[in-house]
């Protein structure tokens, strides 16, 4: 096999120190990275195993929020009582993704860093600017049922496949990172990039950066929220469109709103203008549709995925309707 070195980090600082050299990748759950290595899509020269670092806890924060350790497993996060009670949309989003086996292995930090499921990214005999910059985008003019309708570029129309991240975007989570230049906090909306002319870069992380935690603010929209995932089969499929919706209600009026979409862009898609269009308005399907149209105003379809534009509109209306109706956090 293609040779690589393997080292186990004994502290976050050690991990960051080892990751300075180019061609280094952190490995935790390995549910995406190892597949990509086997498929010859990525070939790190050095693996730094961070899976034993003490970053797997879920703890309350002083601000009334919750800190999700980067190495907490997806399953442990979804079934954490505080997450279920205070951030039910997050729990629901995690459980809508992958399979029980994968959720037991996959970590929260790894989920943020998973790569697209674009067919061309995976098939090394085809062009892909994300895998091989400059080779072209196979999906544009090719098979693009699962591709982006928002924020794409003429270099890449891939989508981010995560469910968890869509809820994190809606919740305005903050990604805690430690790196060669110290620690910093990255607002979730800024964490993932749009493809532009550098589609090979998914996030704003710099070489050597290690995600240590994901902080959830106090506001969890527990009373009025949902995660709606629409896909081609009932389980074990990536979202065609997914919607994380959170509302704060004042009677029949929307006091605050969060809306994030998955399956439609290179990053979880949030649009402050669409959310603004909801605030102070009655919670009616027409208002929801209006907000959806704001969010989708620049949506652009390709040969096989144009249906996503209307599907996204309908999904937004449905998700907001469900969120508005919902009272209290559902107990799985």
């Amino acid at each position: 096999m293609r040779s690589f070195t393997y080292a186990r980090a004994d502290s976050a600082a050690d991990a960051v120190g080892r990751a300075g050299a180019s061609g280094t990748a952190f490995v935790a759950g390995g549910t995406n990275l190892l597949d990509l290595m086997k498929a010859d899509v990525v070939h790190p020269e050095r693996l730094v195993d961070i899976s034993r670092l003490p970053l797997d806890r879920i703890e309350d924060t002083a601000e009334g929020g919750l800190r999700l350790g980067a190495l907490a497993r997806n399953a442990d996060t979804a079934y954490d009582e505080r997450v279920q009670t205070r951030y039910p949309m997050l729990s629901k989003a995690i459980l809508a993704g992958a399979s029980a086996q994968l959720r037991n292995m996959a970590t929260n930090g790894g989920n943020l860093l998973q790569r697209t499921r674009c067919y061309y990214f995976y098939d090394t005999a085809t062009p892909c600017n994300k895998r091989e910059p400059g080779s072209g985008c196979g999906a544009i003019g090719g098979v693009n049922r699962i591709h982006a309708i928002l924020g794409a570029s003429d270099q890449c129309i891939a989508v981010h496949p995560s469910d968890l991240c869509v809820a994190l975007a809606a919740l305005e989570a903050v990604v805690q990172v430690t790196g060669p230049e110290g620690e910093r906090s990255i607002p979730f909306a800024e964490f993932h990039r749009l493809p532009g002319d550098r589609p090979e870069i998914d996030t704003v992380l710099r070489p050597g950066d290690l995600i240590t935690a994901i902080d959830l603010p106090a506001k969890g929209f527990a009373e009025h929220s949902t995660y709606l995932k629409i896909r081609d089969r009932a389980s074990y499929a990536f979202a065609l469109v997914s919607v994380a919706a959170g509302l704060e209600m004042d009677g029949g009026t929307v006091r605050d709103a969060r809306l994030a979409l998955g399956g439609v862009a290179h990053k979880p898609w949030r649009d402050p203008e669409a959310e603004a269009a909801l605030i102070g308005k009655p919670a009616t399907p027409d208002q929801f549709r209006g907000a959806a149209r704001v969010l989708l105003r620049d949506a652009k379809g390709h040969e096989h995925n144009s249906f996503k534009i209307e599907l996204a509109e309908r999904a937004i209306v449905r998700a907001l309707t469900e969120a508005a109706e919902r009272k209290g956090a559902p107990r799985p």
Binding site: Y119, D123, G142, V143, H304
Partner: peptide, 16 residues
């Protein structure tokens, strides 16, 4: 799903 420009089935795995 065949990409007819490439003459190749693109969703050749259990995920897609």
């Amino acid at each position: 799903f065949t990409d007819h420009r490439l003459g190749r089935v693109m969703n050749h795995d259990y995920a897609e």
